[in-house]
Write a protein that binds this DNA or RNA. Structure first.
Lengths: 201, 201, 201, 201
DNA sequence: TATGAATGAGCTTTCATTCAT
DNA sequence: GATGAATGAAAGCTCATTCAT
């Protein structure tokens, strides 16, 4: 039998959550390659056999976790959108969103860093990250569209990708590579750049 | 004893080159974790013992290759600087530099991709990439300084980092993740963004 | 060609000595298994190829060194015999010899320790050590014979072996295993034991 | 199908025992350095992976075995003490103990020989042997103390060490290095020596 | 004769996964 | 369902020795 259990009962769900939790902490702490399945099972107080009845293999656990994580990451970013005036965005609104992005990394910068590291070498990981990128680019395009007449940009698709890339990479630099330069200064300039790029005058 | 041979003789140098070459192709093709030392040696038509007399271990081979690669990458970018009017930069000059960056990835996008993937999980790889970043940021600051009076930016350090991040990540998206969108459009918008960010009026 | 050079010329002899010297220090310092032939050659400023023209292999170097060493060890012990009244030995003479043994370890306790460690697992090493034992037991028997009428022992062969064993092992304990107990006290009691064993009441 | 049910823990214990047994024979036969983990596993009809799930590494297997072995060795020696008149020891009692020591080597002279060979080059092995020595010296001192008024020795600590050394090395010579001389003669003389050393008149 | 590049068997150890109990 | 003993391919690395130059 090769089937993976879909937990329906309360205890089962709890067990699965415990496994995911263990993995989350261990991956963040010791890296994904540096963590083995036995460790994960042990930390979750499950047998290794149980582990493999909840997840087909280590990789599928990771993918499931990553999808979950990126959902939370996405929500964390865009909940700040509530505070902005969507169709009359100004510099302050742009800054608010950028700050939202930076804050969203607070969930677990280490897990983000470790999975992001696999992005360019593992197609499955990349696929999930691309779906996330797509969602975010769509959101940015929606904002551009909503402020169309106040914008100088014509090629909205390209612009959205550019903006997304810039913000993402600045956030990674700040969050993953230590505080070489004050985060606030980076946010300020990043806001400047995007603001001058987008808005007329 | 753990000393690594420094080739003095012609044959030695050739052998070392063969190993590096073989590694270069395998790393690009199958990833760094996906390539083992035996394979590298075999492809180079060298015994595994020879491999380990030229390199302390797989990692040190990688680091040596990466330093070399990033030197070439750096030169490839900034050779285009000769064509620009350094202290009277305009949109065209910015575009020229960005195009230079994109072209520089031509050396081996795959090797770049694979090593970049390790950046956030391997401190040694990151150290080498940080040195490269530092060189590039310095170059950008030099250009900002040379065009000081025509610029609107005040915090040059932060600005240089932001610009570098934006360009790097857009290039990675274009070069590593397939042609989802036309490269020319991305370059165009990226140029726009940086241009409007930097130059008055 | 498999022949090992027998050096006749001055420079050759010097080179061979340099190799032996290097090996001597490295073996003492890092153990015999912990030292490889390349290191020995390097420390002696000879090529590894030269090394193998002076010695058939690492083992034969070791055996040659050991024979040499044990010759010196033997001489160091029995030179003190000059000071004793051979055919009218008393407690002081016994003590003098024991002290001679302890001093003889001064040549290189570490080399002695490292080779002795191989004695019980390597038949070739053991053979050389057995030859040395034989020489020493012969000497002891000679002394017993010279003092025959003053001795209480009958089975001289067994007695000589026993005495040799006792002295050797006490010396090893003192010299190889650190100063858990003062050497002088051990020598004193060892002398007592042998004295009371041998000499009439 | 293997229809015989082996309880979970029982099976585990059996496997571990099989590994230890296999190692015991191979170490004795081919030496410790001459035996590799794969061979041990094979002889025990166990996968190499199993081997490493029972023992951290080859060394820790050896240490565990040695501790066990020396416990048995110690008991084998001192069980003969029951037969002696502890506080009125005579020559016969001394002889009985020495014979006990010689017999104790019967458990596995080869394993003893191979591990003893490592004693002077491996600190961990030595540590375990030193603990054993300490136990034995303590026993000897206890006997000396119990017969205090009949003894001529003053420095009991040194005397105990000397005696222990003498007996140990004579036993090693007899047991490890082949029957060059009749064991009985050695025991006789050894008894004489210790007897005359210890007992008045 | 001297050199040192080259060899490759051999060793230890890890870990994702399976399957008998 | 649950368990954890067992698997074994696979990887990294060493070093005594040879032999082409």
């Amino acid at each position: 039998m090769n089937s993976v259990r879909t937990p329906r009962q309360h205890r089962s769900i709890q067990t699965k959550k415990r496994i995911i939790n263990s993995a989350f902490h261990l991956f963040a702490q010791k890296g994904i390659h540096g963590t083995n399945s036995k460790e994960i099972a042990e930390k979750a107080r499950v047998s290794i056999g149980s582990f493999y009845s909840y997840f087909k293999n280590k990789k599928s656990l990771l993918l499931e976790m990553l999808e979950d994580y990126l959902d939370r990451h996405f929500l964390a970013i865009w909940k700040s959108v509530e505070k902005i005036t969507v169709n009359e965005m100004g510099r302050d609104d742009i800054k608010l969103i950028i700050e939202g992005v930076f804050e969203a990394y607070g969930i677990s910068p280490e897990f983000h860093r470790q999975t992001h590291a696999l992005r360019y070498s593992d197609p499955d990981i990349n696929r999930i990250y691309e779906r996330e990128r797509s969602r975010e680019v769509t959101q940015i395009r929606y904002l551009l569209e909503s402020n169309k007449n106040r914008m100088r940009v014509s090629d909205q698709e390209a612009a959205a990708i550019i903006i997304h890339n810039a913000v993402e990479n600045v956030a990674h630099t700040a969050k993953f590579l230590g505080p070489k330069i004050d985060e606030k200064r980076l946010i300020e300039k990043l806001t400047d750049m995007i603001n001058s790029f987008l808005l007329k005058g």
